[in-house]
């Protein structure tokens, strides 16, 4: 299985490198094509892989800590809350380096609001959580749209940006995101055994020896940090974090030691392919925001989950 995943990841990487407005044959490249491949497509494909991995890792953590198979950065309202912070930061002329910080702040605010609304006596109601997430999404989107009117000049590309896509790609951004992904992955992986206990009901988890409140707070922070930084650079790319943990669970079981790794790799794979599709689907070199592709995939998957897990969702 691990070999299969590594093989698929390599294949997707090569496929994504070759795909685009024109198909590049890696065995027969002209000088210009080599420049396109190395200067444009390589950082773009790597960036999509890192962002996909970040979103998937956060989804794996959200689903476990919120005990909800429908949870990810999009359905919890975290991504749109973080986007709101990023948009306000950009509109108010905040230095670029501080934009992700504001996104983290508002993202955490959105997540905690949804969490507080859906938890009662230590038990999270999964349906209330999704409804609260929808409300946070709507409110955040409304404020973002209002910002577009109010700060028209500085936010002229906001609609395009909110769909989520890789519009500005450079090596420094890629390096920062990769470093953050590595840092969060290592921290979460070190706590993988403890994270497994969060799959139990709160009373069991607490009496099995885990400090649930502290572990949940750390998980929320790391997952939201990943989302905030991803959203600050690419806008809202929904559903990657919803789909991949389920795929990972089907392939490698529910143990978080495996799920964190497999979700991360599958997220990289999924977004590389989705971005390759978004770059190739419109003839003539035009590009679709990748958020549209993932929203289509994720929307169908969400409906599938709602149908198959309906009873469990309603009865908590």
């Amino acid at each position: 299985m691990k070999r299969l995943l590594t093989g698929l990841l390599t294949l997707s990487f090569v496929l994504a490198l070759c795909s685009g407005a024109t198909w590049l044959n890696p065995f027969n490249l002209s000088g210009i094509e080599r420049d396109i491949l190395l200067e444009l497509r390589l950082p773009r494909v790597l960036f999509s892989a890192v962002i996909g991995a970040m979103l998937a890792l956060s989804g794996s953590v959200y689903q476990l800590t919120l005990r909800n198979p429908l949870a990810d950065s999009f359905t919890t309202g975290t991504a749109s809350s973080a986007a709101l912070g990023a948009v306000l930061g950009i509109a108010c002329g905040l230095p670029v380096a501080l934009v992700p910080l504001l996104a983290l702040f508002t993202g955490l605010g959105g997540l905690l609001l949804v969490y507080r609304l859906s938890v009662k006596a230590g038990v999270i109601n999964p349906v209330t959580m999704i409804l609260a997430g929808v409300v946070v999404n709507i409110v955040a989107s409304a404020v973002i749209s209002f910002s577009k009117f109010y700060f028209e000049e500085s936010l002229s590309s906001i609609v395009f940006w909110l769909m989520g896509g890789f519009f500005v790609v450079d090596w420094p951004r890629l390096f920062i995101c990769a470093l953050l992904l590595f840092f969060c992955f290592i921290l979460l992986q070190r706590n993988a055994l403890q994270l497994n206990l969060l799959a139990f009901d709160e009373a069991s988890a607490r009496t099995m020896g885990v400090n649930v409140a502290r572990l949940r707070a750390l998980s929320f922070f790391l997952a939201t940090l990943l989302v905030a930084v991803a959203v600050s650079h690419t806008g809202i790319i929904g559903f990657v974090g919803l789909i991949t943990p389920h795929m990972a669970r089907s392939l490698y079981g529910s143990d978080m030691k495996h799920n964190l790794t497999a979700s991360t790799l599958l997220g990289a794979l999924l977004l590389m392919l989705a971005d390759a599709g978004a770059r190739s689907i419109i003839p003539g070199g035009a590009e679709l925001p990748v958020g549209i592709v993932t929203a289509l995939l994720g929307g169908v998957f969400f409906l599938y989950l709602l149908r198959t897990r309906r009873d469990r969702l309603w009865h908590g």
Binding site: Q63, L64, N196, F200, A203, R249
Partner: peptide, 26 residues
């Protein structure tokens, strides 16, 4: 001490062996 709550549950498909094994976490 250990506790068996009235409604003990596990989300996501863990195997029976994994559930029992995790009891040894402490």
């Amino acid at each position: 001490f250990s506790l068996l709550p009235q409604q003990a549950e596990v989300i996501f498909p863990f195997s029976v062996f994994e559930v029992i094994l995790l009891g040894r976490f402490a």
